[in-house]
Design a protein around this nucleic acid. Structure first.
Lengths: 247, 247
DNA sequence: CGGTTTTTTGAAAGGGCTCAAGATCCGTGG
DNA sequence: CCACGGATCTTGAGCCCTTTCAAAAAACCG
């Protein structure tokens, strides 16, 4: 659980990477919008809708996806507690993909114009937001590499390690086990695989002692081996703030 | 050809999206580093190297890639004239992939610390740089979707359309034909395919009248059909600057 | 509980890969 | 301006990982 669920969503997330100054906190607090509750399968927004708001995930898992003409589905991104939703779409006038709740959860909404205020008055905060965006890109690069060049086992290993790496930032106490808020079909849609083949591969990985699955509870039994299988490099989701402006 | 090859690389690129103010131009001019020449296959930098510089492509094509333990290669990104190289890696202390020249070409180098100066003194320029980063992400999302969910023909169609869409920004006069500065093997490494299979698919696409290949000269004969095949959505590589700060 | 969503399993088909070997193209040096 | 050697492009054949299609068992939710 987040240490400070009752404080500002934004401050909680950004403060993780950087010590915020009082004026930065004030700036963020002013941005704060209302909290919205969702239940599994609820739609947060649709592709093509005008984007007026950004979100921060307070609790629960969410995911963004698009459909293809063939009827296939591609999951573009999964959002965990603490993640921003929609920041990179600020350059578009309408959303580039649908967003749905993978589990029940709560989002904090804040106005898009808030970005301008931050850019105008806090170079340091701006640099942080920019960095988070850049980090996301590197993470997506790693994912593309796994999807384009690895077999099902490698993709799944990489996928799980990425999930753990991200969630451990805000919830280090989970250890090597967590509740997967995704069906095997959805996992397949994130990795370019069929749900059926995800199932078969998961079985094989279980038999090999790599993981354990009890219902939706996933446990990583042999992280070392999983890393070897997927050539996983933990970016530590930590950023270099050496170049940040002082203000 | 770039309209103003003799002026600052940065100004040329950024000025394309936004009218720059004199003080912004001065800021950028001060960042300018030296120009570096490369020939095909020359290595610009290696994965793991410390990142002190960013680059802007002045002429030629460049690409970033990583190798997998299996010996396979993944091309993460291709850089065309006008593109930034390395901005998203500013959050890392070392490079996340190798960069090599796909053709002969020239890069403009500028110091990483330049970013701090921009963040500190021009919110408007900062917003622009942020937006370019975000646009890149959306473009990569599209690419992931094609790679994860489409067959070889769809991936190639999408790949070609993306290339044309990007290059046409700075060189609209190319029309529907350009010189592909990549071997079929390299294209395969960008799309998660074998060079051999790229070859076969290209032949089929030629026979179907979709494209024409004479040596490395690629011509799109039926863009409409190519778009349908790959569900391509031209992001116009144009950005919403409505939210930009005035300064 | 009863309906819906997931997970499982089998069998067969297919797209893309591997391995191999020849044909071409191209830059470079003489 | 021609010849040489490496890089690229081609093509064939067989194999393998994933997908499809179907259908039953289990798990989940209200």
């Amino acid at each position: 659980m987040a240490a400070a669920a009752n404080q500002s969503c934004l401050i909680g997330k950004l403060g993780h990477y950087l010590e915020l100054m009082p004026r930065d906190e004030a700036l963020l607090a002013a941005c704060e919008g209302e909290e919205l509750e969702f239940r599994k399968r609820n739609i947060v927004r649709r592709e093509g809708e005008e984007i007026d708001y950004l979100f921060v995930v307070q609790t629960g898992w969410f995911y963004g996806f698009t459909l293809l003409p063939s009827g296939k589905r591609q999951v573009h991104r999964i959002f965990f507690p603490g993640d921003f939703i929609g920041t990179h779409e600020i350059v578009c006038t309408s959303a580039t993909y649908d967003i749905t709740a993978a589990s029940s959860g709560v989002l904090c909404r804040f106005d898009k114009s808030c970005m301008r205020d931050i850019f105008l008055s806090s170079p340091r905060l701006t640099a942080l937001i920019y960095s988070l965006e850049a980090l996301e890109q590197i993470s997506q690069d790693d994912r593309l590499r796994a999807i384009a060049r690895m077999d099902a086992e490698g993709r799944l290993a990489h996928f799980f390690l990425q999930i753990f790496s991200r969630i451990r930032i805000t919830e280090p106490e989970i250890g090597n086990s967590l509740r997967l808020e995704m069906s095997q079909e959805l996992i397949g849609d994130a990795l370019g695989l069929t749900g059926i083949h995800v199932n078969r591969t998961l079985k094989a990985m279980t038999k090999a002692g790599l993981i354990e699955l009890e219902g939706s509870q996933l446990t990583l039994l042999d992280e070392k081996q999983l890393k070897a299988l997927s050539d996983f490099d933990d970016r530590h989701y930590q950023i270099d703030i050496g170049w940040f402006p002082e203000l």
